[in-house]
Design a protein around this nucleic acid. Sequence first.
RNA 1: GGUUCCGUAGCUCAGUUGGAUAGAGCAACAGCCUUCUAAGCUGUGGGCCACUGGUUCGAAUCCAGUCGGAAUCACCA
Length: 591
Amino acid sequence: MLESKISQVVAEAVKELYTLIVEANTIILQKTRKEFEGEFTVAVFPFVKASRKAPEATANEIGSYLKNKLEEIEDFNVIKGFLNLQIKKDYWINFINQNNSESYGINEINDNNTVLIEYSSPNTNKPLHLGHIRNNLLGWSVAEILKANGKKVVKVNLVNDRGIHICKSMLAWLKWGNGETPETSALKGDHLAGKYYVLFDKHYRAEIATMIANGTEKETAEKQAPLILEAQEMLRKWEAKDPETIEIWEKMNSWVYAGFDETYLRLGVDFDKTYHESSTYLLGKHIVEKGIADNVLKKKDDQSIWADLTAEGLDEKLLLRSDGTSVYMTQDLGTAELRYNEFEPSQMIYVVGNEQNYHFDVLKLVLKKLGYDWAEAINHLSYGMVELPAGKMKSREGTVVDADDLITEMENTAYDKAVELGKIEDFDNDEAKKLYHTIAMGALKYFILKVDPQKNMLFNPAESIDFNGNTGPFIQYTYARIKSLLRKAEWNTNVKINHNTSILAKEKDIIRLLHEYPAVIKNAGENRSPALIANFVFELAKEFNSFYQEIPIFKEENEELRNFRLSLSAFTSNVIKSAMMLLGIDVPEKM
RNA sequence: GGUUCCGUAGCUCAGUUGGAUAGAGCAACAGCCUUCUAAGCUGUGGGCCACUGGUUCGAAUCCAGUCGGAAUCACCA
């Protein structure tokens, strides 16, 4: 790689010139700012103490050294303490001729270690909402980015298909459902389950209100309302494998799964393996028992078992209840072990909201305390909440943005826009439908993924997601434009650029961005951040549009120049497509 | 209260891991379609990078404190 080569020689230069030893990888090589001549810049301030010369003189000396040693360097200039390096045109032409393909920047698997990534992890008592969308898109995209970095990736889902919340839906359905099914109600299965979950809550609250009105304490009422007791009884029956309960449970869950599958399909996310909590919730007990035996966990008088993490600055954490049943943490210890034994991954990434930061700190610490050295492999990809202008989404207040509704709404908006702009006049029905789905999802996915994962983000339902400016459709449009250009030119991908071709500043800006792409993929992988890809591809599209507007291609009479510009356009389209794929966004050939 | 994360233009977000005059988009305003797709391009205005101090050649970025916001601290998941 050119950058590391330059860093290497800079290190050599300061060693030879000033007997200063620096590691090549600590030398900061940055992109030269547009207002200056050159492609790469070295800040020489760190070397002036050793050179005992002014920054300018130091930069000049290092510059001369580099120019002599590196054939790729055409020339250099110095402004203040900044050494700007100009790279030979030959290097850039070769770069284009050798890399212009859809696979540029994407690595084949080059690492035998497996990376396991869990995302989605829905509860089966209600449909997916906007929060899940962020989770799914992030998880899927990070998986793709890691693959592009040469990792072997296994995508898993852990479906929370049991527990008190599911019993609430089941109970409400039994009581007030009159045998309603997705078929008879024309409701998606997950929405049907959600409907009864809400219904349960409504009646439950009414019971509590009545009890409070009759003089019961609020807390007692919440614990003793007949409905909640009934739901708890149902959970006990489920755990005892009562056939009737299991039957309803299976029926309801199967409706929900069908609903989820539909949403996942529209969203374009998938999994290599799906775990169900109903078959993992009992795991982990033996781990806890081993911890007791090894004396790293303690048992209290009431027989409950705890991990004491006060030495690590945290609290005590319950691992087994006094009645011997497990809690969430116990199960997570078990599933972590299960997965580790199954895949022996070098990394286990959990895409889970930042509300569970504490949980994962504890999970890691407990595993470490218990002596599992693979605890270090556990990696919580913690992402911020999606907030509405009024704050957090609250299902009780009906402010939850439903995933299916949002996707449909986006499709409608995309359709309206396309009609308004006269874009789909020569499209047949299927093509048009496909196009507005592609654009709708492009807008939605880009909107979510361009934001740094760890930050909370705001979604305003009143202002629908934009289609202009820094958006998915903007980038898709740029791609479609290039493809139209290439179709008209009957572009042949085998054409190589002549070395005599001159390169304009605007073109150089694009080449520099294209050249950066592999580094962006690497960075995005290390930081597990699709946002880095999103910001990069936006910048590339913006740069291309500016070039496209300003510099004629077909009107150019010089064939070499025309070919160069077409080749540059084709290269740009390849990188746009590839980067958008990493985000899970399709790009249309026409729009 | 303890812990963690966040605070950058009116709004939504970047800021390449400490570098040059802090950038985009939206919104506002002014231009550009008989010329490769105007979902585009060009320009104008808009900033105490929450505040205070420290570290050094150099800080939006690192450290400490203050203020503001969020999350979390269950025999829930």
